[in-house]
């Protein structure tokens, strides 16, 4: 039994579940929510790469999400470009803006960085909100086209959109997994742990922090572009701090600096708030305090809590079995 429940099998079962879900559940609404959850999770992964693995809490990610969304929206609606070209360009534009902002923002540390990025987020919001000739301001950008068909595959039905999102999502998870488990990921973690020590180990903290920042804006922008292509209507509110704080909540509840955290946090909160209708507007009554409590009592969220108890349990087990049987955790 234990053998069957190893990490790889759990992941395979989850992927299988995600693939067959549209066949088990015919409810379009749930499909819609899950598609959104995949999109948000991608943005949370972006935030987590920077805040969780590199130690820099950015409060501008709602803004970068919006740049990705407006990037796609403006390129298609006003630029007349095709969907896929715009979809490719939007995250790259976000990344380019992220690069410029990162160059300056990363000169600051800790709370200065948080305040700096919060201001950047606000500026992005205000620009989108006020620059009506470009963004249509509060009226919002309407008429964003759906993804064009690729060969015989069309993306007009919710199910097709669901699978498209799922594929991109899985790709993102794979990429994040590989980054975190590579020397690059180890480098990020070393910086989070102690910049001074990382520097003295010959790591260019400047370069690596910028890399992490730009990557995280890329994922935020990608999620934004996916959102715009899925919902097909966007307004300035997607750049507001509310979105940043939502992303932050998903990340902290799931587990900052863990690989499974963004999925757990985003899905848990989105599904919970869907099922508790009365919570819609007031979900922060529960998730706000939860955020505060978790950061005090389990700083690495739900996933961190489970990992901690799992490793304690394993340590206990280790004491009872001969040492040579325990190899690699």
């Amino acid at each position: 039994m234990m053998k069957l429940l190893n990490k790889r099998n759990i992941i395979l079962i989850l992927i299988l579940l995600a693939v067959v879900f549209p066949f088990i559940n015919q409810n379009q609404y749930y499909l819609h929510i899950l598609t959104l959850a995949f999109i948000w999770t991608i943005a949370v992964y972006g935030l987590n790469l920077l805040a969780g693995f590199t130690g820099y809490l950015s409060l501008a990610h709602g803004g970068f999400f919006a740049i990705g969304a407006y990037g796609l929206g403006l390129l298609t609606v006003k630029g007349g470009l095709g969907f896929w070209l715009s979809f490719l360009l939007a995250p790259l534009i976000t990344m380019a803006i992220g690069l410029v902002i990162g160059l300056f923002a990363l000169r600051t540390k800790e709370h200065f960085f948080a305040i700096y990025t919060l201001c950047v987020g606000y500026i992005i919001y205000l620009v989108i909100d006020k620059w009506e000739s470009l963004t249509e301001g509060v009226r919002g950008l309407i008429g964003i086209p759906a993804p064009e068909p690729i060969g015989p595959i069309t993306f007009t039905t919710p199910i097709a959109q669901y699978y498209l999102t799922l594929v991109i999502f899985l790709l993102v998870v794979l990429i994040i997994y590989r980054i975190v488990h590579s020397l690059t990921g180890r480098t990020f973690i070393a910086i989070r742990n102690s910049e001074e020590l990382a520097l003295s180990l010959g790591i260019s903290t400047k370069k690596n922090k910028l890399l992490s920042f730009v990557l995280s804006t890329f994922f935020a922008g990608l999620a934004g572009a996916m959102y715009a292509g899925f919902i097909r209507f966007i307004g300035p509110e997607i750049a507001y701090t509310t979105i940043t704080f939502d992303l932050l909540t998903y990340m902290i509840v799931g587990g900052i600096g863990t690989l499974a955290g963004p999925i757990v946090g985003t899905f848990l909160i989105l599904i919970l708030s869907q099922n508790l209708q009365f919570l819609q507007d007031y979900r922060m009554l529960i998730f706000g305090p939860l955020l505060t409590l978790l950061i005090i009592f389990s700083p690495r969220g739900i996933v961190g809590f489970i990992l901690l108890h799992y490793s304690n349990w394993k340590t206990k087990k280790r004491m009872t079995i001969p040492k040579d049987q325990v190899k690699e955790g």
């Binding site: 704080f245 932050l248 902290i252 706000g288 950061i295």
Partner: peptide, 16 residues
């Protein structure tokens, strides 16, 4: 990072 997140949690709660 923790005190900032905690403060944001309170902010979200009070607004809701």
């Amino acid at each position: 990072i923790q005190d900032k997140v905690a403060a944001i949690g309170i902010l979200l709660f009070l607004e809701a």
